[in-house]
Design a protein around this nucleic acid. Structure first.
Lengths: 118, 118
DNA sequence: TCCATTGGTACCCTTCGGAAACCATGAAGG
DNA sequence: CCTTCATGGTTTCCGAAGGGTACCAATGGA
């Protein structure tokens, strides 16, 4: 931690913005079990619309986090798979997810307590 | 990882959304060295506007991640400090930040390569 | 009297995320 | 020959959220 993440022009911020996208996090988690097709991912990740999923996947492909492979078949088949770079994100992301699961209750009760005296 | 983070109604998603807020991450990092005042944080975190910083701090207070202490002085003084719950977020957040710093170069070069053939 | 400091608000505008509808391809079925 | 179906998106529209700038209240000090 060199602290330069505070500088808005530091590229590290750029990464935080990408990870800050909740869908990217879920895509990484969704692809940990191996390659998946568009519709598969769409079903796996509840609540994502096709437009936003496309945007997310394109951006992650652009950043080298995953590959997009088109098979010239009918009906069309497109597979998404994590690159080694994308796979290396799993560990920190799972750390966040684990924290979330452990502390959901504390956060929710804090929120309820706060709302109670509002 | 129970996998229920994929369920949009799972409270874990709620946490991911909060962490997904890039400003929250930077606030946690900014408060690791001890309590700070509003203007201090504002200066430390480059590029944040007062409105958004206020929103972020209020939401984090609501969720029990930090405390907001007002001193009845003139000029007014307000200190923000991490709660134990908020402090426990440091470890996973620093893991993400470390990943970002290690892999910034790879991501940026992937992006450049992609843009080159566009 | 006028100014400076602090911790915000109020206002406005641009952008982004989300919902719903639509589309091109081509094999398969009738 | 015409229709149907599946896939992997795209297009359009809308409301909400993000962000920039200006401003404010309180009070001590010059």
């Amino acid at each position: 931690m060199k602290g330069d993440a505070f500088d808005p022009d530091c590229p590290t911020r750029l990464i935080l913005d990408r990870i800050g996208d909740k869908w990217s996090v879920l895509v990484v988690l969704g692809l940990t079990g191996g390659p998946r097709r568009f519709t598969e991912l769409r079903g796996l990740i509840g609540g994502v619309t096709p437009k936003v999923l496309t945007q997310t996947l394109r951006a992650m492909e652009r950043d080298g986090l995953l590959t997009r492979t088109i098979f010239a078949e009918v009906p069309p088949r497109v597979e998404y798979a994590l690159t080694p770079l994308g796979a290396s994100l799993r560990r920190p992301i799972e750390a966040i997810a684990a924290w979330a699961e452990e502390n959901v209750e504390a956060v929710v009760s804090a929120r309820d307590r706060h709302d109670a005296l509002a």
